[in-house]
Every structure is written in C-alpha cells, then in structure tokens.
Amino acid sequence: MLQFKLVLLGDSSVGKSSIVNRFVKDTFDEFRESTIGAAFLSQSIKIKDPKTNQDVIIKFEIWDTAGQERYKSLAPMYYRNANAALVVYDITIADSLLKAKSWVNELKEKVGNSTDDNDNDNDNNNNNNNLVIHLVGNKLDLVEDDPEMRSVATEDAVKYSTDENLLFKEVSAKTDFNIKEVFQTIGEKLYEIRQKELDNNNNKQNKGEINISLPRPSTNDSTSCCS
C-alpha cells in the first residue's frame, strides 16, 4: 500500500471540506478509516497498474487547511512534505480563482526552492519535486440550475491549467459529480511518478552512477558479516 499526503487549499467558502467529505463518505465503505474531526481524513482508493493491470491500493492522508486570508501565512506548515495539492475554487465567484492561482504560484515557488537547495536523492525532495497539483472548480450544480451564476468560464480555467501544467476538473460536491474521478486521477498520477522514480533509481544503479551498496548480502548495519 502506498501512502500519500494530500493538502487542500482554497478560499474559505469554496467547499474544500465538502469535497473531501463527499469523497470519503461515498467511496468504498470497505476502506473507511478513522478520522479526527473532518479536518483530517484518511481514505484509500484502488487504482490499476497500467502495465500489470493489478490493483494497487493508495492511501490518501488528507489535510484540510484554513482558507481565511488571515491564516494564509500558516499554510506552509500544512503543505510541507505534501505529495499532492488540491486547489479548489468556486466557479460562481471569480475572485476565488485568483486566490487559487496565488496558491498555485506559492506552491510552485516554495516547493521549487526547497528542491534547488539540495540535490540529494532524498525522498522528501523527490516528493516535493513532483508535487501533483489538481485544480478543481466546485459548485457545478449551481451553474446547472442557473447558467447565469457562472462567473469563471471553463475555458479560462482549462487554459490556465494547461499553461501551468495542472490537472483540472469541474466538480460538484453536492451532486457527487466528478469527485471520485479527481482523486482517482491524482492517485494514478502519483503512482506513475512513484514508478518513474523507481525506474530512474534502478537505471542509475545499473549504470553505476551511484555508489553501490547493492551487492552487499543483507544490510550494512554493524552486525552483518561483511564490511
């Protein structure tokens, strides 16, 4: 089982937690896990390995953040070491997309910096380097009832996402539209990245680019027989 940390970002009224609640409550009762409040949830999903077609279980540790402007400076504490970020905006409020964009910028900036500093083959760095950002436009149900309410055009968001290389979907937490798919996509993306990392590491070792500790029979702790 693979475990990933996913952080929720977005303005306070865009429905971050309702998306997660919908996701956790409606999907896979078999995987239901304990939570504290609704701010911290963990939930597993099944994805298929594209090569072997086998089921892989992916566990999300979902961290909700406080979206109010006054708490903005506290966000780095939450998205530290995150593998994925779900940036949410409200498609009926134009301003919320701007907030979302600022979150995306902050993530790219902060996370980018931390990887430049040390170039080690450290897990954390790899994770940060490959932070998966998924942009989500919530409250699609409102627009379906009354198209007038929409104030963020889908095309704009799509364009922005393509430019910034983000995943994107419009969803409705209320009607459960696209919710599962969002997490499924994130899961698949994370799995793909993890596989690539493994491949890279293997390749490097095969080429002898790294100091090999591979041929050692068991471990390199002080009790093992070869040094």
Binding site: I36, G37, G67
Partner: peptide, 16 residues
Amino acid sequence: HNILSQKGNATSNDDF
C-alpha cells in the same frame, strides 16, 4: 480535536 468537531461542530479546518 474530537470534542470540538463532534460537539462544537467545527467540521472543516476553516472553523477548527
């Protein structure tokens, strides 16, 4: 945490 979210109804971290 548990008490606040159950009894205090602070469901999301915005409130919490």
